[in-house]
Design a protein around this nucleic acid. Structure first.
Length: 230
DNA sequence: GACGTGATTGTA
DNA sequence: ACAATCACGTCC
């Protein structure tokens, strides 16, 4: 469905069954690396290869939205059936895409953190105008923006709405590296982040911010260009 | 390195 | 009702 002329989809295999997600998030998260996430939001096909994920568990995971306080209106979706899409809004700006894992009634999910863009590049580029290709989706907020994901996708099911995850047609056997999860005040010490070791499309390496290496050489050579106030 | 931005949540 | 928090991105 939704063929896109000119787009190489040769690497896309079959759709992952929902049973794929009926496991512990710590198993699903690394297994998703190399799979292909496709969005048809807004009527345009866009997607790429998943290169970075994080696992979130239930009540005993201090970094999870399901931690300690039980079910709330927001996190109730985390207790839903495997393959459910959980999108939430944070920092006043950003949407985060998660895929719910484990049996219904048990909270757990995987945050999709970064993508290597391969499908609908023109769409991805227009949604992330001005950024180089490696920064189209190298972070969870950027990824959601690039794929046109928002709260309308929350509580939908993979394969039934705008979002689908496909297996890779080519046997990709990426070298998986782990690290602590990013951006958490609690639970960041748990090594539940998984990423493709040699990918240049991840949000960061094992330590430290992205090695895009451009912030570093921002010498203030161009002082005179005073700008509109800010 | 510092802010914006607004929903969600626990607390008063 | 209120204030803290936040699974981030951008520009300085």
């Amino acid at each position: 469905m939704g063929e896109v002329p000119g787009v190489a989809k040769a690497h896309v295999g079959g759709q992952l069954p929902l049973s794929f997600f009926d496991r512990d998030p710590r198993e699903v998260a690394p297994d998703l690396l190399g799979a292909i996430l496709v969005s048809t939001a807004g009527g345009a096909v866009a997607g790429g290869i998943i290169v970075e994920t994080e696992a979130y568990l239930g009540a005993h995971d201090p970094g999870s939205h399901a931690a300690t306080h039980g079910m709330t209106p927001r996190n109730a979706v985390m207790y839903g059936p495997p393959g459910t899409v959980y999108v939430y809004f944070t920092y006043g700006n950003h949407y985060m895409l998660n895929l719910i894992c484990g049996p219904e009634g048990e909270a757990g999910g995987v945050l999709i953190r970064a993508l290597e863009p391969t499908i609908g590049l023109d769409t991805l580029r227009s949604r992330r105008a001005g950024r180089p290709d490696r920064e189209l989706a190298n972070g969870p907020g950027k990824l959601a923006a690039a794929l046109g994901i928002d709260l309308t996708h929350n509580r939908t099911t993979l394969g039934e709405g705008d979002l689908v995850v496909y297996d890779s047609a080519v046997p990709s056997d990426p070298v998986v590296e782990t690290s602590g999860r990013v951006g958490l005040s609690a639970g960041h010490e748990l090594e539940l982040r998984y990423f493709v070791a040699d990918s240049s499309h991840v949000s960061r390496g094992r330590t430290g911010p992205p090695r895009t290496g451009r912030a570093r050489r921002a010498t203030h050579a161009r002082e005179g260009a005073h700008d509109e106030t800010r």
